Simulated assay, not measured.
Amino acid sequence: MNARVLAVARDAAHRFSKQTVADLAVLTGLGVAGDAHHGATVQHRSRVAADPSQPNLRQVHLLHAELFDDLRAKGFDVGPGELGENVTTVGIDLLGLPRNTVLAIGSEVALEVTGLRNPCAQIERFRPGLLAAVLDRAPDGALIRKAGIMTIVRAGGSIRPGDPIAVTLPPPPHLPLQPV
C-alpha cells in the first residue's frame, strides 16, 4: 500500500480531539494555521508552564490509522482527529521512523520528525482505559508509545486527504524516536 493521508484535523482551542476538515494550511516553522499548537515556541500547556521559550517540536501531530483497528479490537471505537492528531496516515510505519526523517506530503509540504507523542491523562479522560491501550511493552520491558509522532514544518503548503507521503531518511546513524 502506498503511504497517504487519510484525514486532516485542527482545533483552535486546547481540546483533546480535533475536527476533521477538507484541508490543512501548514506554515513553515509554525505548524497548522488555526490550530492551538501553532507557533514557533512550545504551545502544549504543560510545557508552556515549564518554559514558554522552548522551541515547538510538536507543530504537527501524525497518527497511523492502523492504530484504530488495534484499538477497536480492544473495545475502543475511535476515528480520525479524535486522538488529537492533525494528520491521519495510512500505509506508513510512523513509529518505526528515525528522528529527523523528512515526510514530503503532496507537492508542497515537508515535515521533519522530532519524536513520539507521549500520551497523557487527557487520553484517559477522553475514554477510560484508552491510555493503557495506546501503550505497550517491548520484550525487554521498554515502554512502547503508539499514539503517533510529532513533527516540525520545514516547508509549508496544503495537506489534503489522499495526498501521497514520501519518506526521506536522514543520514546514518539513525536515532530512535523519543517522546517530545
Rank of each mutant, 00 (worst) to 15 (best):
V5I: 15
V167M: 04
D140F: 13
P128H: 09
G39F: 03
V87F: 05
P98G: 05
I149W: 02
P170Q: 05
A22L: 14
M1W: 10
P52H: 11
K74R: 12
F126M: 15
E82R: 12
A166K: 11
R160V: 07
I144Y: 09
P55A: 08
H174Q: 15
M150I: 06
L71Y: 12
P170C: 08
P55D: 01
I105W: 00
E112F: 09
R154Q: 09
L27D: 07
L62P: 02
F16G: 05
I152A: 05
I165H: 00
A13T: 15
R154W: 05
I123N: 01
A73S: 11
P172S: 14
G157R: 04
N118E: 13
L143H: 10
T41P: 12
G106Y: 02
A40V: 11
L67V: 04
F68I: 03
R137Y: 06
T41L: 09
P139F: 02
R127T: 08
P98E: 02
D77Y: 15
V180P: 00
D70V: 11
T168R: 10
A138M: 14
G29R: 04
L30Q: 11
I152W: 00
V180R: 02
R15S: 13
R117W: 05
G157I: 01
D23Y: 13
Q54T: 05
V78I: 10
L57G: 03
A49P: 04
R72S: 13
G129P: 02
Q43T: 10
Q54G: 08
F76C: 06
G148P: 04
I149G: 01
G148H: 06
V113N: 02
L130Y: 03
P172G: 13
D93F: 12
I123T: 07
T151K: 02
V60S: 01
A132T: 15
G106I: 02
F126C: 07
Q59M: 04
R137W: 07
E66G: 07
T20Q: 07
F16M: 15
S17L: 13
A13P: 05
L169F: 12
A132H: 15
R10N: 05
